[in-house]
Simulated assay, not measured.
Amino acid sequence: MPGVFITFEGGEGTGKSSHARDLAEVLRKAGRTVVLTREPGGSPSAEEVRALLVTGAVGRWSADAEALLNYAARDSHLRETIRPALARGDLVLCDRFMDSSRAYQGFAGGGDMALIDMLEQSIVGATRPQLTLILDVEPELGLARAKGRAGAAGVEDRFEKKGLAFHRKLREAFLAIAAKEPGRCRVIDSSRPYEAVSEDIKRAVASVVGLA
């Protein structure tokens, strides 16, 4: 039986990581075998690339270089973690995936969308998520939340420092992706209390994984 692939997307400070972690716990208690992973990262090699992307000076990479680095990491992540888990019939929850490349490096970053399209087709191929949860919040609120967690997150703040105009474009990008693929994407208002957002996530996931 093939596995199920669910991704969490959105800008900074939307709560993706926390909600992915909590959903994994709910699904495990319901008897599902869950692989909780993230991007950039998710395999030993990809985690090494992550450090290049999320730390350091804002201008250390162009948008196209970021796309290439992300896809180098994604190739490893897919080969070493995601595809083996799906082949076993596991449920894979991933904090960010291909839509983040489109939003961060393409739409907001001004990178070459033809390059991103080619990388997605070649590396992601048919391994696309059945469900993508896009957690949506005003950029000002999201950045304030992200700043509040900075102490725990260490120095992984390179994208947070790109400025409000970048993050407004980022939000537009994710909403545009959702509008283009309504069958795959669900937009969830993440400005509300955490418990309300969590309940909406569980409802969205229930139809895909049979969660009661």
Rank of each mutant, 00 (worst) to 15 (best):
E195V: 14
E25I: 00
L170V: 14
S100C: 02
V155N: 13
E140S: 14
H19T: 03
L68G: 13
L91C: 08
R203N: 10
V35Q: 08
G148S: 13
V205T: 13
S101A: 10
H77E: 14
G41C: 14
V137C: 01
F8S: 05
Q121A: 15
R50L: 08
L211N: 12
A152E: 10
V205N: 13
F159R: 02
L53M: 09
L52Y: 11
S62H: 08
E12F: 02
G106E: 08
D99H: 06
R88V: 06
P44Q: 14
S190A: 15
I134T: 13
P84I: 12
L135C: 01
R145L: 10
L115F: 00
D22W: 01
I188A: 11
S101N: 12
D64H: 07
E199N: 06
R74C: 03
F166S: 04
T81D: 11
E9L: 06
E156Q: 12
E120Y: 04
A46Q: 12
V197T: 15
L36Q: 10
V54K: 08
F107H: 12
E9T: 01
V58Y: 03
L143F: 13
R88E: 15
V187T: 12
L68H: 10
E160K: 01
V137Q: 00
G11S: 04
I201F: 11
V35G: 06
L131S: 09
H167P: 14
R83G: 04
D90C: 06
R171Y: 01
L170E: 14
D75Y: 12
A144K: 15
K161Q: 14
A72W: 01
D95P: 09
I177F: 10
S198M: 12
G31M: 03
R28L: 00
L211F: 04
D157A: 11
S100Q: 12
I188C: 12
I82T: 14
K29C: 03
V54W: 02
K202S: 11
E66Q: 12
A204D: 07
L23W: 02
L27P: 00
E120H: 12
A152N: 06
P139A: 06
A46T: 13
R192N: 07
V205L: 10
E181S: 09
F8L: 05
D189K: 15
G89S: 11
R32M: 04
A67T: 09
L68Y: 09
P84R: 06
G125T: 07
P182T: 04
G59P: 10
K16M: 02
H19E: 03
S190R: 11
E172G: 11
A57L: 05
D90F: 00
L78R: 04
V4I: 14
